[in-house]
């Protein structure tokens, strides 16, 4: 048997700094990856998530954007030991790629729900057609779910169409709006206040509380947007 070592470039170094670990209350521990907001870091978070799932003292694991919230079943007697263990788990966590599904979502770009497309054109200096083309040509990864039932934070947005969240949220953004928030994109799953910028609309229902698997998206899934209609 021979052991083949991966090329050095593919090795995720374990010396790239410690995770930042902080408390939220007595049972929740937030582990934040050092370094960039990118796919390699998120892959390590997925690995950490996987490693922690089987720990008997863990009640719940909530992956975020290059971070992970661990909720313990009970308040630990020695939180410093938990922090040390989590740091060790982070050190050991190697990049894993989740074998996610490929999800294609039909989108109507522009139209009545694309309230923020003009502002994005102004910000980016691009035409509406270019904005739409850049958005639907992208390939996105679901980094994590959160904020609302089934809402997937999608990573991979072209920097040319990054757009900061609004300081004053839209009060009644419709469920299904295709939105941009900073360097991420996503599809609104609830109608209501929303600080992201809407450029289109998708009919897909992202969440069904009565389904065995209520959320359509899962971390690691690949998402593509298919321009079904463009109304500019």
């Amino acid at each position: 048997m021979s052991i083949r070592y991966a090329a050095p470039a593919a090795i995720v170094p374990d010396t790239d700094g410690q995770a930042r670990i902080s408390f939220i209350g007595t049972r929740a521990f937030l582990i934040e990856a050092p370094g960039a907001f990118d796919l390699p870091n998120q892959r390590r978070v997925w690995a950490l998530s996987h490693a922690l799932e089987t720990r008997p003292d863990v009640a719940e694991i909530v992956p975020g954007m290059t971070n992970l919230l661990v909720i313990l079943k009970e308040t630990p007697d020695m939180p410093e030991v938990v922090v040390r263990d989590l740091q060790e788990e982070w050190r050991r966590a190697r990049s894993v790629d989740l074998a996610g599904r490929e999800i294609e979502i039909a989108v109507t770009y522009g139209g009545e729900h694309a309230d923020d497309l003009p502002a994005l054109c102004d910000l980016s200096g691009l035409s509406d057609r270019e904005v739409v083309r850049i958005h639907h040509e992208g390939t996105y990864r679901v980094f994590a779910l959160g904020s609302a039932p089934g809402f997937g934070y999608l990573h991979g947005l072209d920097p040319r169409i990054h757009m900061p969240r609004k300081t004053v949220p839209s009060l009644h953004m419709a469920r299904g709006c295709v939105t941009i928030g900073g360097m991420q994109t996503g599809i609104a799953v609830l109608t209501g206040p929303n600080g992201w910028n809407s450029i289109g609309f998708a009919e897909l229902q992202m969440f069904d509380p009565l389904a065995a698997s209520p959320a359509v998206m899962a971390p690691g899934d690949t998402v593509r947007f298919r321009p079904e209609r463009i109304e500019l």
Binding site: I24, V62, G64, M65, G146
Partner: peptide
Amino acid sequence: MRSHGVVPGV
């Protein structure tokens, strides 16, 4: 700040 999980009481 990168979006992260929270629990009641935060």
